[in-house]
């Protein structure tokens, strides 16, 4: 009797937001990615780890839709990524690159506004301006908004670009009858971070990763390339370890990250230690 009255419980399966199938990329005669198949979930922060030259950045570029020269396919939700849906993609997916080559005296505000470019045609709306202000507030750089970008330090520049990227995917895409966001089922957003914290001091590293987690909680698939194993374990829901263009391990940090893996992949010896208040695995490495 009871079974008939209650509606069937939805199966709470983690939602796959992003899939890579058999990605192969050859650059300059070197096979950078050798058949990578993996998936990323919305609501989670996924960390890509691996030694230099293991293909981390290349994988990120392929997933983000910038590099299209290889074979295999990338699926956003159910939709295959092609070069045709570029402008649609820019409204739901943002990328924070390792470094930017901006050499012109734009203000911090103007740089952050670039994140809204995919959303307006000619002039920013009041809404766009508000979002930029909120993004600057989020990274606590509101006082810098009229500063010349070129006078900022490396870390400050990185935070400005983070604000720009946040502004780009500040809101879940609006579903309207005319523009169906097939790349973003249920309003999923995508954030790719390539070594985002390399120029930040300790405090901002943690603040940054904390913000990334908050964004992930709002139905965003966050994929980050990180060098710091311990921070990856602390802030990542999942890790993907690459070596020589192949996936060597993937899963939850505590399941994947072991001293043996660090030895096999990086060639460094390490001891797993426990630190008060940290539940994730934590390593001291010896080189």
């Amino acid at each position: 009797m009871l079974e008939q009255i209650l509606p069937e419980q939805p199966i709470l399966e983690p939602r796959t937001a992003l899939q890579a199938r058999e990605l192969r990329v050859t650059l300059g005669g070197n096979e950078i990615l050798r058949g990578i198949t993996t998936r990323f979930e919305a609501g989670k922060v996924s960390m890509i780890l691996g030694p230099n030259g293991s293909g981390k950045t290349t994988l990120l570029n392929v997933l983000a839709g910038e590099l299209t020269s290889g074979s295999g396919e990338v699926l956003y939700g159910e939709q295959r990524l092609t070069t045709k849906n570029r402008s649609q993609l820019a409204r739901v997916r943002a990328v924070l690159a390792q470094h930017s080559e901006l050499a012109f005296p734009l203000t911090v505000e103007e740089v952050v506004m670039m994140g809204r470019y995919p959303h307006f045609v000619l002039k920013p709306t009041r809404h766009d301006t508000e979002i930029c202000a909120a993004a600057l507030e989020q990274i606590r750089m509101m006082d810098f908004r009229r500063r010349n970008y070129l006078t900022l330090s490396g870390g400050e520049r990185q935070r400005v670009h983070f604000a720009r990227v946040l502004a780009q995917i500040w809101e879940a895409p609006q579903h309207s009858e005319h523009t169906s966001h097939t790349l973003s089922q249920n309003g999923t957003r995508y954030l790719f971070l390539d070594e985002p914290i390399s120029f930040l001091d300790l405090k901002y590293q943690h603040e940054f990763l904390h913000t990334a987690r908050e964004l992930a909680a709002q139905n965003t698939a966050v994929v980050a390339v990180l060098h710091d194993i311990n921070l990856a374990a602390q802030y990542g829901d999942a890790v993907l370890v690459l070596n020589h263009g192949c996936v060597v391990a993937e899963g939850a940090p505590h399941a994947v990250l072991k001293p043996e893996l660090l030895w096999n992949v990086y060639g460094v010896r390490s001891t797993q230690v426990s630190a008060a208040g940290i539940n994730s695995p934590f390593f001291v490495t010896y080189g």
Partner: peptide, 20 residues
């Protein structure tokens, strides 16, 4: 003008902002 501004960030950054 928008795309010209975006290009100041670099080619891949501009592409990420939807510029062909």
């Amino acid at each position: 003008a928008k795309a010209l501004n975006a290009l100041l960030l670099g080619e891949s950054e501009a592409a990420y902002l939807g510029v062909n």
